[in-house]
């Protein structure tokens, strides 16, 4: 197909005398924002954000999906949301990243309402990114282009630097050297990992994972857990994880919330959740096939 050919040719000639022309063409003759090592986006001071959700309600027609959600997430926290299928976990994440608009209630990120337009004079003070449950990779692009899309489209770095970042992020999720693969050649778990790499390429201050381990094997899940842990130590970003993988969620998180029927019915540290006396929580956690081992029994 044409896009392939275009990018291939750009690869080949980018070293020659025509190279600068092609890369200029690829960047639409716009002046690069970044010359040398200057960068328009503050990458060094990545910092966790606080999230405050109050009285959030959302209905679709007659079905009331989210009911009076109240939630406070501290800066730098790793927070998990667990709960049965169809209770509105994904929907809650979409509200946080402004993809859905609530019927009532408020979401404050760093004490700023997400639905109010940001003051144009202030520099944008945080970045968020979301790993979708369905991965949502761009079909027309290769793996590498998917990962580098944000960097390229927003002119964050020059082409060489972007390639290096793509390589690095793909290695982080265990897909080193797969840049040129097409998305339809990937398995479900590989897609998820590319989606994670794409989110990580933004160096976000807030990252939301929707079922990050749903299609991963145990070893890759472990690897992902390590990546999330090290990010937390290095960058101190705020992480929200929605997962059915209880061991994964309880192992990684500082705090866990359990959603049921559109409400948050329990919230606490992993050990508090494990000790919870709430029958719904106990019932959800101590299942035979997917749950965790009961303590003392």
């Amino acid at each position: 197909m044409a896009p392939d050919k275009y990018y291939k040719s750009q690869h080949v000639v980018s070293q020659g005398p025509l190279g600068s022309f092609w890369s200029k063409l690829a960047h639409g003759f716009a002046p690069p924002i970044m010359e040398g090592d200057f960068c328009p986006v503050n990458f060094s001071g990545s910092h966790g954000v606080s999230i405050k959700i109050s009285k959030l309600n959302k209905s679709f027609g007659a079905t009331h999906v989210l009911k009076d959600i109240d939630l406070i997430i501290e800066p730098g926290e790793t927070f998990s949301i667990i709960g049965p299928s169809g209770t509105g976990k994904s929907l809650l994440l979409k509200h946080i990243v402004k993809l859905e608009k609530a019927d009532s209630g408020q979401i404050l990120i760093n004490d700023h309402d997400v639905n109010e337009p940001q003051d144009k004079n202030l520099p944008r003070n945080f970045r968020y990114s979301m790993v979708f449950q369905s991965s949502a990779l761009f079909n027309s692009l290769t793996v590498g282009e998917n990962v580098g899309l944000w960097l390229r489209e927003n002119r964050i770095y020059g082409e060489v630097r972007i390639r290096r970042i793509i390589r690095e992020k793909l290695r982080l999720v265990g897909l080193a050297g797969k840049e040129e693969m097409r998305t339809e050649e990937l398995s479900g778990g590989m897609k998820k990992r590319v989606a994670i790499a794409r989110s990580l390429a933004m160096e976000p201050d807030l990252i939301l994972y929707d079922e990050p381990t749903a299609e991963l094997d145990p070893v890759t899940s472990d690897e992902l857990a390590r990546v999330i842990m090290s990010l937390k130590e290095k960058v101190k970003l705020t992480t929200i994880i929605v997962s059915h993988d209880l061991n994964f969620a309880l192992y990684l998180s500082d705090r866990v919330a359990m959603m049921h029927g559109g409400e948050i019915i329990a919230i606490g540290t992993p050990s508090e959740i494990k000790k919870s006396q709430n029958p719904i929580v106990r019932n959800f956690i101590y299942t035979t096939t997917k749950g965790i081992k009961g303590e003392g029994d």
Binding site: K98, F132, A136, F138, N139, W150, N154, R198, M202
Partner: peptide
Amino acid sequence: GAMQVYEEIDALKTLEISPVRY
């Protein structure tokens, strides 16, 4: 339409790329 249905448009928005522009 496929991009809309498979959440790719949503993904574009979270990547700070306007789907209209892109």
